[in-house]
Design a protein around this nucleic acid. Structure first.
Lengths: 213, 213, 213, 213
DNA sequence: GATGAATGAGTTTTCATTCAT
DNA sequence: GATGAATGAAAACTCATTCAT
């Protein structure tokens, strides 16, 4: 029994993808229902069939966007049981790589963040990126600060995390303002320069250092 | 003969202020002409009397917002002919102080940045903060790197600037996400920790170091 | 199974009719979107659902107006394979008849003509009436001028056409200025008087002459 | 005692001229108060200082427009005490000359005519051109029809006048639709062809005939 | 589940007119 | 007489949402 029609539930995803594409390309302000259905090639009523409202579609899109972003290095983190400085290095490089940092992802991320005021439903997702990154980094940093016998290893780890996440965030903003001029290698070098200053035993100017046993 | 009427020319500024307040409080998406005139207590036609269009008013508001922001440390920079590390320190502290970093300023700044796609007239102001900060920092850093006889002082200064500006930008984003939790002192400490790592002769964990002659 | 709902697709036509009625009665200048939907008994958004803009609705109305006008004598011309002077006579009489020349049609026509400056989309329809009338008349006249062995039958036919069309146009203007005083029979008599002077073998004071074989 | 200020009453005329220019160039619909004062180089309040309202300014402009038009051949008619066919000939030629029929005059005339519905104050001027032309022509025609011992010279004169005025009006419309293609000589030829048919003793194909005593 | 015509509140903008100076 | 900032009603248009099919 052949089925020529597309699987019904897929339309939900098509709408989400169209929404993300529109936000990335023309901005959230200009992303109207009309714009979304035009991109999705679906009917007008579709949105309110699969979602309670446009805002709820936006929330679903935000959720999908963050999920999509994390899938890339979820694997990376689960599988690398290596030394903390290498996990940090991997994460930084991934977050600045051509897969991790695309104009679409950065733009969408930024748009969702400023739309939180206007669309309360988006709030739960507004600092997701932040929160997860923090957790990953903080654990790794604490391993290092404990090892270094820092007087307050938890505090030191938190500060290092805040600084690193802030810098990553700022580099993304920089990338958005000047996508053409942005050099991924240079960005990574700048991050490592900072880490090398703070944790010279674990980071050098070009990345994580191999610790001698 | 007293004059009870409000000074007419000021209405332009009242509109700009109302616009900035609205953007800061309810976001640019919800900032309609109706909202602006309600806040300003002025008539509908006023906007198109003083500005070509709503977008043009937004542009004027963006310009005013950036100007207002810079006035605070323009003075600071003009008067401090001290050592570069102190100028950097002053700027960092100012940018994180209660005057330099308010929720209104940070929010407005962020909103204008993401609205550039939808409102082309805003483009000229989108990276103004960035550009001016960069210039100030870069000059100071280069004084230091030259003094340190860095093999490529200009490159080093540029990298340090990019890193510092990115971190400041990221800290602002952090502040916006959690205004309640944000600790200005802690933020400054984190910045100085990074600078101390990169330029240990000029910065300590708590700020700029006095150089011994 | 009765259907009490109005046929939906017809709303497009209802809007066009309401537009034409409004133009005829209160003039194009006063024909606002609000006026049109009030006459049509439809909702505001309707206009931009069926037409790109108000101007585009005006263009559709202009097109419909001209089409409607021509339908009346399209038949007449297709079926009358008679002598050219009778075809001319029929057209003139039709154009001045109570069906061909109504206050609505004449008024609408006139309004559309002067609105061409303000609404470029109307341009394609501004001289349609003219052009079609010319073609019909010119062919008939040329049959006559050839038969009369005029030295330049094409030129003579063109001049006669220009004169006749101008006079018909002028009589319509006259009708619009003084609809009460306008006498259709008198108008026809005046036209035939002119034709009788120019082509005495084919026209008399009261219309086309039967040519003796 | 020198006076550097322009004579006050002139501003009234400047406004009228600016209004006529605007109507001719961009059409009455687009002729706003803002447009008029921009062209006049005068202040906004000026209009309501010299005129009761915009509509009243339009009426004054209409009046001036017709007056201006008639001044050209008022002289012509007062001074030519020649035979009626020459007076008619002169009037026709004048009405189609480069001075009598300009794009500005024809356009303005046409605009005022269709604006009568929207602006009642314009009504008194809407058929002025018509009425004056009729009077001039009718007198001349009646001299001819009396001389020809027409059974009803007044009726014949009236019909000839209606036909001629209609044709002139239609030719103006033609001119407006295709200003580039319009040939004044050809237009005159067409008129005379009609007159020659109706009054062969007084008009030839190229104009009025000299009557032999 | 799917469609898209229909709705009307809401948007930005234009406009003739007013009036304090 | 002259100015032009100010007004607010009304203009054209956009939009998320509804609902009969």
């Amino acid at each position: 029994m052949p089925n020529d029609l597309p699987p019904r539930q897929d339309n939900r995803q098509i709408l989400i993808d169209a929404t993300l594409a529109s936000i990335a390309q023309i901005g959230l302000i200009r992303t109207s229902v009309t714009e979304i259905i035009a991109r999705a090639g679906l009917s007008r009523g579709m949105i309110h069939l699969h979602f309670e409202s446009k805002e709820s579609l936006l929330a679903a899109a935000a959720e999908h966007s963050y999920d999509r972003y994390y899938i890339s290095f979820e694997d990376l983190l689960n599988h690398s049981k290596t030394a903390p400085q290498f996990r940090i290095e991997a994460l930084v490089l991934c977050d600045l790589s051509e897969d991790g940092l695309t104009e679409d992802i950065a733009r969408t991320n930024h748009e969702f963040q400023s739309a939180t005021r206007a669309f309360p439903l988006l709030a739960p997702f507004s600092d997701t990126r932040d929160a997860r990154l923090r957790t990953y980094f903080e654990r790794a940093f604490e391993e290092i600060t404990r090892e270094l016998e820092d007087p307050d290893p938890a505090l030191a780890a938190r500060d290092l995390t805040t600084g690193l996440v802030a810098m990553m965030e700022g580099l993304w903003d920089d990338f958005l303002l000047h996508p053409q001029d942005f050099a991924r290698q240079k960005a990574a070098r700048i991050v490592f320069r900072m880490l090398a200053g703070a944790l010279p035993g674990h980071f050098g100017l070009l990345g994580a250092r191999h610790r001698v046993a």
